[in-house]
Computed example of a mutant assay.
Amino acid sequence: MTTSLPRVPSLPRVLIIAGSDSGGGAGIQADVKTTLALGADGCPAITALTVQNTLGVTGVWEVPAPALIAEIDAVLAGGVAAAKTGMLHSAEVIRTVVERLDPALAGGLDLVVDPVMVAKGGHRLLRADAVEALKALMLPRAAVVTPNLPEAEVLTGLAVTDPASMIQAGRSLIAQGARAALIKGGHMDGPVLVDMLVTPAPEGGLKVLRFESARIDSRHTHGTGCTTASAIAAGLARGRPMAEAVAVARSYVRQAMLAAPGLGHGHGPLRHDWNRMVAAL
């Protein structure tokens, strides 16, 4: 007698090109946890090995270019519904990623670009020589770019300190080629956190969606940027429109912060499986 297994819906696959976080709270580890929690299969291509925990980053080792190429090609060969980039620490890595992704992007693959520059503890994760490569090569290929305020300032040359300047930064990023820009306002002071999604309006000009939520007073913020971008990529892979993918991602990250397990002595990780945990109760 044989037992048939229940039919399980197939998961759309998301190619994740990012660094590994030995602390498990950010990078590839957070990306894979997030995509699975939101109904997608995160398939990693690791760009670098970082040595870190909640107190900070103490080392970074690059993955050799041939290995990175092989990783990306292997995932693409299986078919993917969206892609997300995180830590691309050098101009060489960026050029390698673009070369391997271009055929898929020409076929309509959506790419979420998280311009990871500095770790929560202050360690620089993007070399100075890579900033121009990121602007010239990644922004024109991005379905959406997701900078925090310091990253938006580096990418645009503008002082980004309030909602009005966030919109101007979004305008600049779209002028540089991105199809949408989510400017994240977590670095602003105040009890209300504001994010701005800026997209071109069909009739010309810009369309701006303002997202607001009460600020969470917590040290458990490690990996929020990676998690947000991966959550958006999972939404796009599942066919959600951009605004809906962003709204779901913000809600998911907020709940993951509220459910944080309290690990570590510095910037602690989120609870990425909070929705599965709730469903099991």
Rank of each mutant, 00 (worst) to 15 (best):
M1F: 15
T2L: 13
T3G: 11
S4K: 15
L5V: 05
L5Y: 09
P6E: 10
R7L: 11
P9E: 13
I17F: 04
I17A: 06
A18I: 10
G19N: 00
G19V: 11
S20Q: 14
D21I: 02
G24C: 12
G27E: 04
D31L: 03
V32E: 10
T34I: 12
T34N: 05
T35W: 00
T35F: 01
A37C: 02
G39D: 09
I46F: 04
A48C: 12
A48M: 11
V51R: 00
Q52N: 14
V57T: 12
T58V: 15
V60I: 15
W61E: 08
P64M: 12
D73W: 06
A74G: 14
V75Q: 03
V75A: 05
L76Q: 03
G78E: 10
V80A: 01
V80H: 04
A82W: 11
K84E: 05
G86S: 15
H89K: 07
H89F: 08
S90E: 10
A91Y: 11
A91V: 07
E92Y: 00
E92T: 12
V93E: 02
I94L: 07
I94Y: 08
I94K: 00
R95A: 12
V98D: 02
R100A: 05
R100M: 06
R100Y: 07
L101D: 08
P103K: 13
G107P: 04
V112E: 00
V113K: 12
M117A: 02
M117E: 03
V118S: 08
K120N: 05
G121A: 12
L126E: 09
A133F: 09
L134Y: 11
A143T: 14
V145A: 11
V145K: 00
P147N: 14
P147E: 00
P147V: 09
N148M: 08
L149M: 12
L149Q: 08
L149A: 07
A152F: 13
V154E: 14
G157M: 05
L158V: 06
A159S: 08
V160E: 05
M166Q: 14
Q168D: 09
A169T: 12
R171C: 13
R171P: 09
S172K: 05
L173K: 01
I174D: 10
A175E: 12
A178N: 07
A181P: 01
G185D: 03
D189L: 13
V194S: 03
M196T: 04
M196G: 03
V198D: 01
P200K: 00
P202W: 13
P202N: 08
E203K: 07
G204Y: 03
G205C: 13
K207V: 15
L209T: 07
R210K: 02
F211I: 00
A214N: 13
R215M: 00
I216R: 15
I216Y: 09
D217L: 00
H220Q: 05
T224F: 01
A229N: 07
A229G: 11
A231P: 02
A233E: 00
A233H: 05
A233M: 07
R238M: 10
G239T: 09
R240T: 08
A243K: 04
A243L: 03
E244Y: 08
A247S: 06
V248E: 14
V248G: 04
R250Q: 13
R250P: 01
R250G: 09
S251W: 04
V253G: 01
R254G: 09
Q255R: 15
L258D: 13
P261M: 02
G262C: 07
H265G: 02
G266L: 12
G268R: 03
P269I: 04
P269N: 14
D273M: 03
W274N: 05
N275A: 06
A280K: 10
